[in-house]
Amino acid sequence: MNLRAPARTWGGRTAEERRAERRARLIDAALEIWIENGWAAVTMRGVCVRTALNDRYFYEHFADRDDLLAAAWDDVCAEVFADLASVVAENVDRPALEILRAAVTRAVELQSDDQGRARILLADHAGSAVLEQRRKTMLSDATDLLIVTSRPYLRPDIDETEVRMSTLVGIGGFIELLTAWRTGTLDIDGERVIEHTSRLGALLGAQFLPPDVITGA
């Protein structure tokens, strides 16, 4: 029989739990600085000062600043995707285009919160190769998510490549529209973003969805 010694604890927490807590604190500090002043303001020294942790703990988790930025982005992106997936699950019994509208509405709400972490996903990432690559990956992952979500509703004879191209156009355009709205390039409110995107979604969906799926009849 192999007997394992119980994990040693400090203050009621194991070493692994304390490590995880320090990592979370560093990421939270990075996101706070990012939201306040942009990604370029995030530094190893800045997050250490904000968390009262020394650089030894920083390098315990991250190789450098890019590694921290990537981890912070990944955390937020995972949160947003999980949030949107929950919206889809909650509305699964509704017509396909109503599900789309619910997801669009939630995405707009996430960007409406001035203190919300989701804002970093649409910020200016020029100059950061790691964040620009993350943004490209986000577009691809969002496309995959929408295709998987819509597949049960699609006509059986659809061209898969056509679906992917149209989905890329739709999601890419939505991201650019959200960005223009958030930066003030377009002087509109969130409701108008929702209405416009939902109409475009209906136009794109008409190419691939049976009429009864579109109407929910």
Rank of each mutant, 00 (worst) to 15 (best):
61 H>I: 02
119 R>W: 00
51 T>K: 07
171 I>C: 14
103 A>G: 14
41 A>P: 11
135 R>P: 04
83 D>M: 09
44 M>R: 14
104 V>D: 09
4 R>C: 03
68 L>W: 01
147 I>P: 02
32 E>V: 06
88 V>D: 13
92 V>C: 13
196 H>M: 14
74 D>H: 04
179 T>H: 12
129 A>M: 05
138 M>Q: 13
93 D>N: 14
210 P>M: 03
111 Q>Y: 01
39 W>T: 10
142 A>M: 11
140 S>K: 12
74 D>I: 04
172 G>M: 06
59 Y>R: 14
186 L>N: 08
112 S>G: 14
118 A>F: 03
120 I>Q: 06
185 T>C: 13
83 D>A: 14
29 A>V: 00
143 T>K: 05
190 G>Q: 09
86 S>E: 15
18 R>G: 05
26 L>C: 07
192 R>Q: 13
68 L>G: 05
183 T>M: 11
167 T>L: 07
93 D>V: 11
111 Q>E: 13
94 R>S: 13
82 A>L: 12
166 S>P: 07
140 S>Q: 12
131 L>T: 03
74 D>P: 03
116 G>Q: 04
23 R>T: 05
158 I>R: 15
166 S>N: 14
200 L>G: 12
125 H>D: 09
1 M>N: 13
33 I>W: 04
85 A>L: 04
189 D>N: 15
151 R>A: 04
141 D>P: 03
70 A>L: 04
148 V>I: 07
212 D>I: 04
84 L>A: 08
54 N>S: 12
27 I>V: 15
168 L>P: 06
86 S>Y: 00
51 T>Q: 07
60 E>Y: 01
67 D>E: 10
165 M>H: 11
2 N>W: 00
73 W>I: 03
31 L>D: 07
163 V>I: 07
199 R>M: 08
172 G>C: 09
164 R>P: 02
160 E>W: 00
14 T>Y: 02
209 L>N: 04
57 Y>H: 12
86 S>G: 15
65 R>H: 01
202 A>P: 04
127 G>S: 13
42 V>F: 05
187 D>A: 15
153 Y>A: 13
85 A>V: 04
19 R>F: 01
4 R>D: 05
188 I>Y: 01
154 L>P: 06
104 V>L: 12
66 D>L: 02
95 P>T: 09
107 A>H: 07
20 A>N: 09
194 I>K: 11
27 I>T: 05
150 S>F: 01
157 D>C: 06
1 M>S: 14
